[in-house]
Amino acid sequence: MSTVTAAPTRLTGVNPVAKLAAALVIAVGLVLSIDWVSASTALILEMILLLVLRVPLRTLFTRAAMVTLAAALTAVTILLYGESRGTVHWHFLLITVSDGSITLAVATFLRVLAIALPSVLLFVDTEPTELADGLGQVLRLPARFVLGALAGVRLVGLLGQDWRYLGYARRARGVADQGRVKRAAGQAFALLVSAIRRGSTLATAMEARGFGAHPTRTWARPSPFGRREVALICAAFVIVAVAIATSVATGHWNLIATR
């Protein structure tokens, strides 16, 4: 049986710690100001970077659509309940749509999009094991914490399968014939009990195999950090620097601390 593998990109093989650092640099730089100029500038540069990194267009559009929807919902909330300033276009009870709320909603939409998009797309081909290797070897985080988190992430994928099997078993016994709400509540409790038991068993097994012995911990796979990783982080700094410089030069810089 053949398996379909994702098309390789220039992000393939890049240390996940560098991707995490690049996403963090962009997020910290853009969260300092609420203005549409810095956010839109960063967004354009990010799209160029993602195209240079050869992120598949299908993946780019699919995940961008999901992020856009989340950003739009946030912008709608700001539009209806944001700062009232300038001309009021519509008012109803607590809802006020004004020039100030419209401007703030646009800036918020672009900023959420500019922050979330690289955070999602930079990890498009990153495996949890690779991220754990990087956190343990590059950032020197405690192996007990890293491997425990990795094991937890691995088990998350089993929740859906357990939910289906619990449903099949309860229907076979005639427990879930009526009452969807009651059935869902009982099945959710059974899933919680099953997850706790599996987690306890996994923790005992890991302790028995020495996963808690940090001084003697070795790593099966090396996690190199070289020029590609440094270039990615430098690109993130360039994006933030150009976005802030453009915003300041056009007079749209709006530092959050001064609001």
Rank of each mutant, 00 (worst) to 15 (best):
M1S: 09
T3G: 14
T9D: 08
L11R: 10
T12I: 06
T12H: 15
G13W: 05
V14G: 01
A18C: 11
A18M: 09
A18P: 03
L20M: 04
A21W: 00
V25I: 14
I26Y: 04
A27L: 10
V31E: 09
S33I: 04
S38M: 12
A39I: 00
S40C: 12
A42K: 06
A42L: 08
I44F: 11
L45D: 01
M47H: 14
L49A: 10
L51A: 15
L51Y: 12
V52K: 09
L53F: 08
L53A: 13
V55E: 13
V55R: 11
R58T: 13
T59I: 07
T59F: 09
F61V: 14
A64K: 08
A65T: 14
V67Q: 01
L69H: 07
L69G: 14
A72H: 02
A72D: 07
V76E: 10
V76G: 06
L79C: 07
L79M: 10
V88S: 03
H89D: 00
H91G: 06
H91M: 02
F92G: 10
F92N: 06
L93C: 07
L93S: 11
L94R: 13
I95F: 14
T96G: 09
S98Q: 05
D99M: 02
G100N: 00
S101E: 01
S101K: 06
I102A: 11
I102R: 11
L104F: 07
V106A: 13
T108Y: 03
F109M: 04
F109N: 03
A114S: 13
I115V: 15
L117S: 05
V120F: 12
F123I: 05
E127L: 03
P128R: 04
E130G: 11
L131V: 01
A132S: 09
G134Y: 00
G136M: 01
V138G: 00
L139G: 06
L139T: 02
L141K: 00
R144Y: 00
G152P: 00
V153Q: 02
V153D: 06
R154M: 07
L158C: 05
L166Y: 12
L166D: 10
Y168C: 12
Y168G: 09
A169K: 08
R171M: 13
R171S: 15
A172W: 04
G174S: 10
G174M: 10
A176R: 12
D177K: 13
Q178C: 01
G179K: 06
R180E: 07
R180G: 15
R183S: 12
A184I: 08
A185V: 15
G186E: 09
G186I: 06
A188S: 15
A188F: 11
L191W: 01
L191G: 04
L192Q: 05
S194T: 10
A195Q: 09
R197C: 00
G199N: 14
S200V: 10
A203M: 04
M206W: 03
R209W: 02
R209D: 03
F211N: 04
P215D: 08
R217H: 11
R217N: 01
T218L: 12
T218C: 08
W219K: 05
R221Y: 12
S223E: 01
G226S: 06
R227L: 11
E229F: 12
V230P: 04
I233P: 02
I233V: 15
A236R: 02
A236E: 13
V238L: 15
V240F: 11
A245H: 10
T246V: 14
G251F: 06
N254Q: 12
A257M: 08
T258A: 14
R259E: 01
R259C: 09
